[in-house]
Design a binder for these strands. Structure first.
Lengths: 219, 219
DNA sequence: ATAATAATTTAGACTAACCTAAATAATTGT
DNA sequence: ACAATTATTTAGGTTAGTCTAAATTATTAT
């Protein structure tokens, strides 16, 4: 499989919302920063290889085979991200580009050894689950702080807005990846939140809260 | 720079014997498992980019710029090899293919962090020197046991014949990568050698000795 | 229901990296 | 020295992945 084919499969997987909903040509084109006509070409190729199901004008879905392939790439991407953060001490917001390249390295043995070396992690640094070698993905409950009921707690696993300004704000307020956050109360007036981090209560605006992801613990 | 361009530069560097001797089109074609006409095409392209010096029918040499680029790739290749052997516990004879892929990952920051993570190694698992970020390469004295004067000692860094049979033989005789080997005496009759490994003297045939590389310590 | 708009596909073209076959230059043997 | 051989280059073609422009199908709004 070529690098480009792998990238298309990955895009289709993500756009299908990790489900298998049909994905539009234009959506793929936008995600991949390419033109719709190029997408059509590639879809035809993937369809001939039985990696996707395709009917003209109806969008695409991944075949079982294609889904498995997509999960393989995602597994590699996320394991490499763990490596970059845990072993090479990059921060979570600078690893994506590197992982985009590393995910295409072809060697099952390498990825298995890497998995072992990292201690078989279940989640990547952004809180997204790492698919198993067999293509199983843990469900995860990663949600914006604003979307969660009162008294919910979870681990801070990501940001929606990854601008430097926002990341600096978090730093200043001692909010970091991996912190356990509990939502104490919500201010009706402006939607701001009272939250607790490491036994310290702070008050954050709705704007901030709506850009912070926590992963709610699995039941 | 494309992956293919990088591979050509690397091939030219190696074929120029790490010196800057002109390299023949056919030699490159053989090394890269491609046709001479394809090589000519690529050489023209590299020449336009000022990465090589080229005059028709006269072979190519690397320009200063091209040499620097080639050393960059080799640096990455060898650092990844160290990673695979030291951290993921691969053996020295199974890392080459993976490193061939990893060497094309584009990120200076990544390679610097990797270097640091590995403790700034000076040699790869085969005893070849790792070029510095600035493109300096340590000279190294990697030689076959049969080519070395009596009483020379060095570290076992590689094999010429990497067949399974030979590797098994080494295992059985407790000869491993990293061992310090001293050549004690040479049998005139059959060219066999008496050598010392970890204070133990053993006797090996010329056939064995002529497939074992040691790296003589730099003066 | 149908005209206007949006999404998708088709047609034809381009580039990088390869190929084969033919032409040309360099080298070698006598 | 020059014929034969070998090395190299040129000419023209192929494939993967992209593009633009035009044609076609689907959706939306009145």
């Amino acid at each position: 499989m070529t690098r480009s084919e792998e990238n298309y499969l990955k895009a289709i997987y993500h756009l299908g919302d990790n489900q298998n909903r049909p994905v539009a040509t234009n959506a793929i084109a936008e995600q991949m920063e390419t033109k719709p006509s190029s997408v059509t070409d590639m879809i035809k190729k993937l369809s001939e290889k039985k990696l996707v199901n395709y009917r003209k004008y109806q969008g695409v879905t991944l075949s079982e085979h294609g889904r498995h392939a997509a999960l393989g790439i995602i597994r590699k991407h996320r394991l490499w991200e763990v490596f970059l953060v845990d072993k090479l001490h990059f921060s979570w917001d600078e690893v994506h580009e590197m992982a985009e390249q590393l995910e295409h390295i072809k060697s099952d043995k390498l990825i298995d050894r890497l998995d072992e070396h990292l201690g078989f992690p279940k989640y990547d640094p952004h809180g997204d689950p790492i698919p198993s070698r067999e293509g199983k993905v843990n469900k995860t409950d990663k949600r914006l702080l604003t979307e969660v009921p009162l008294n919910t707690s979870g681990i801070c696993v990501g940001v929606k807005d990854s601008s430097v300004a926002f990341l600096k704000f978090l730093d200043k307020n001692k909010i970091a990846l991996g912190d356990t956050i509990t939502v104490i109360d919500r201010e009706e007036f402006d939607g701001s939140l009272y939250i607790e981090i490491d036994q310290i209560k702070i008050h954050i605006s709705n704007q901030i809260a709506s850009n912070l992801y926590i992963q709610v613990k699995d039941l």
